[in-house]
Amino acid sequence: MSVSVLFAATEDRWTEYEAPLRKEIAAVGVDAHIATDIPADKVDYIVYAPNSEVKDFTPFTRAKAVLNLWAGVEAIVGNPTLHLPLARMVDPALTQGMVEWVTGHILRLHLGMDAHINAAPGIWEPEAPPLSFDTRVTVLGLGELGAACAMALAGLGFAVTGWSRSQKDIPGITCLSSADGLDQALSIADYCVLLLPKTPATENTLNARTLALMPEGARILNPGRGPLIDDEALMAALDTGHIDHATLDVFRVEPLPADHRYWTHPRVTVTPHVASETRAAYSSKTVAENVRRGEAGEPFLYLVDRSAGY
């Protein structure tokens, strides 16, 4: 018997996902009808992006799960009509994209590449960059993405400390938790990478108080969520030079308004929310595996903890 999979996302996403989804769901041995216009009471699985038109889940009386296409679930997890298991997106390409962005931008700053790229002709200042062995990186958030970035940086020789709400144990990483642990992690951060989920508890994790804990000349990278940073506090810390540089990929308002100070601040690099993106060829495999698991009566992968918000 065929299962019905509703694709509830924007039209451009359907164009991108239709063929890979059909291929990957067939590859796991599930006969599926996949479309964008299935009646709600006939839907078995909802492949979902929070910017779709589907906001009320009440009519989906026989659906078994909502399979989110995004890693972040803050736009759906609090939906009062959502009565179904919710799975977030985890896939190798999403993780690899984040690892490449984080390591690339840390190495750019660590090696002082901008000074060489922008040097005037004839400027010859052969000052050796620091070594990773002598450089401390703190990663805030040790979920799938944060843990992968922490291990990649440790593999490059950086001294890596990770902080998370619940205590983790990752080989080669100093893992901390608790409010005191956060202060400790920030106090030793030459670089701080923000990969926390967006929840009421994580908003403004970097604020005037916590920024002041960081070493003079520290650098910040935020590929996680815009609200993790108090923008005014960060701007003040950048203006004084206490924070040497911030590389920011996510913002409270996106696209970042053209008149925002981040665009022109000499200590800020803006990237347009490109740190990690779901790619249909890979994320379709995650969706397909969860559909297979649902049909086999097995536990779904990457289920969201509603109480924690991620």
Rank of each mutant, 00 (worst) to 15 (best):
M1C: 07
S2D: 14
S4I: 04
A8R: 05
E11G: 11
W14R: 09
T15W: 06
E24W: 03
A32Q: 07
A32C: 04
A35Q: 10
V43E: 01
I46R: 00
V47Y: 02
P50V: 08
P50S: 14
E53K: 14
F60R: 02
F60N: 04
F60W: 00
A63N: 10
A65E: 12
L67Q: 02
L69C: 09
G72N: 04
V73G: 01
G78A: 08
L82P: 09
H83W: 04
H83S: 08
P85R: 08
P92W: 04
L94A: 10
L94N: 11
E100Y: 01
V102T: 02
L107G: 10
R108F: 15
L109I: 10
H110G: 06
G112A: 11
G112D: 05
G112W: 09
D114T: 10
D114A: 14
D114L: 12
I117D: 08
I117F: 12
N118I: 05
A120I: 05
A120K: 13
A120E: 13
P121E: 10
P121H: 05
W124E: 13
P126M: 03
E127F: 06
E127P: 00
A128H: 05
A128K: 09
V137F: 01
V137C: 01
G141Y: 06
L142N: 09
G143A: 12
G143V: 14
A147E: 15
A152P: 10
A154L: 11
G155S: 07
L156S: 03
F158L: 07
F158I: 05
W163P: 02
W163K: 04
S166F: 05
I170P: 01
I170D: 03
S177G: 12
D180F: 07
L182A: 06
L182R: 13
D183H: 15
L186A: 08
D190T: 11
V193A: 11
V193P: 02
L194Q: 03
L194N: 08
L196M: 10
T199D: 12
T202F: 00
E203N: 11
R209P: 05
L211R: 01
L213T: 08
L213I: 04
G217W: 15
A218G: 15
L221K: 07
N222L: 10
N222V: 12
R225N: 07
D230N: 15
L234M: 14
A236W: 06
A237R: 09
D244V: 02
T247G: 08
T247R: 03
V250H: 01
V250R: 00
V250Y: 01
V253D: 13
P257R: 01
H260F: 10
Y262C: 00
R267P: 02
T269W: 08
V270T: 08
T271M: 02
P272Q: 05
V274H: 00
S276C: 06
S276M: 02
S276K: 02
S276Y: 13
R279L: 11
R279I: 13
A281E: 15
Y282F: 15
Y282D: 15
S283M: 03
K285A: 15
V287G: 01
A288M: 09
E289G: 03
V291P: 01
V291G: 01
G294T: 07
G297E: 11
Y302F: 15
V304Y: 07
R306V: 05
R306K: 14
